[in-house]
Computed example of a mutant assay.
Amino acid sequence: MSSVAQKSSAAALFTMGSLEAVAIARAPLLELRRKIEEEVRTALPTDDSQKVVHSPLLAFVNMVVADGKELPATVDSVRRQVLSDVDLYLSNKRKQRMLLKLYNPLHGMSEQERIRATARTVGLDIPQKKTDLS
């Protein structure tokens, strides 16, 4: 009878140990998810009333993090690598936008805005067209 009790207690310890191992293994995944969410929040323009950002990328990241509680170590390392690649991509895109804005101020403007800004740099203003005939 003690062997049954020992087996059940060993199974309980194994279950507790595996749950702790899963929690420890998921911690870097959750940290990566938080970093990606922060990058997406800074990249997307939102108003004050919309606190939650809805993005297909965030849905994918949440699916990767929540997909399967206990997976083999190789699958877990692949998930971690995918999330770190997404994080690296988003941070590099943010840096690229910042550098483009800094060194190429005409980037992202419409053609009319670029013409007006270019004319202003040499001291000219584009004449205003009169629309009313009176």
Rank of each mutant, 00 (worst) to 15 (best):
G108N: 00
F60A: 10
S49K: 13
S49Q: 15
S91W: 02
Q112R: 11
D87Q: 05
D87C: 12
A27K: 08
R80G: 03
R34K: 13
M109R: 12
G108C: 00
L83M: 02
A25P: 00
A66E: 10
A66K: 07
A10T: 04
V4W: 13
E37Q: 13
D132Y: 09
S8Q: 10
H107T: 09
E39W: 11
S110H: 02
V122L: 05
G17E: 04
P72D: 08
A117Q: 03
M63C: 12
T121N: 05
R97G: 04
V52W: 08
Q81F: 02
V52N: 11
V53T: 03
V75F: 14
M1K: 14
V4L: 15
T121W: 06
S110V: 02
A73C: 04
S110R: 04
S77F: 06
T131L: 05
E31W: 09
G123M: 00
H54R: 12
P127S: 01
K95S: 12
Q112E: 10
M16H: 15
Q81V: 03
G68C: 05
H54F: 15
K101H: 05
V65P: 00
L106I: 06
K101M: 06
T46I: 13
R80N: 07
L124S: 01
L124V: 01
T118G: 08
I115D: 04
R120A: 05
L44F: 06
E38D: 14
P127Y: 01
S8A: 10
S18C: 08
I126E: 03
E70M: 13
K51C: 07
A23I: 03
K130F: 07
D76M: 15
I24D: 15
R33D: 07
L88V: 11
V78E: 14
K35I: 08
Q112N: 07
F14R: 15
T131S: 11
L99T: 02
Q81M: 06
K51T: 13
L100D: 06
S84G: 00
T118V: 04
S9N: 12
L133H: 12
A12N: 09
T42Q: 14
T118I: 08
V64F: 01
L19F: 14
S3K: 11
Q112H: 14
E31R: 15
E70D: 05
Q6E: 10
R94S: 12
V75W: 11
S134N: 08
T42V: 07
V82T: 09
R116Q: 04
S18L: 11
S134E: 12
T46G: 10
S134A: 09
V65Y: 01
S84M: 05
G123Q: 01
K95W: 10
A11V: 06
E113S: 02
M1W: 11
R41G: 00
D67M: 06
L100E: 06
M16P: 13
E70K: 08
L71G: 01
T131K: 13
A11M: 11
A73E: 13
G68L: 06
Q128I: 06
P72G: 05
T121Y: 01
M109F: 08
V53H: 03
A119Q: 05
E111Y: 10
Q112D: 10
A5E: 08
G68Y: 03
A21D: 13
V61C: 02
N62W: 08
V4F: 09
V22K: 01
Y89T: 11
F60K: 09
A11Y: 12
N92M: 15
E113T: 01
A11K: 08
P28H: 05
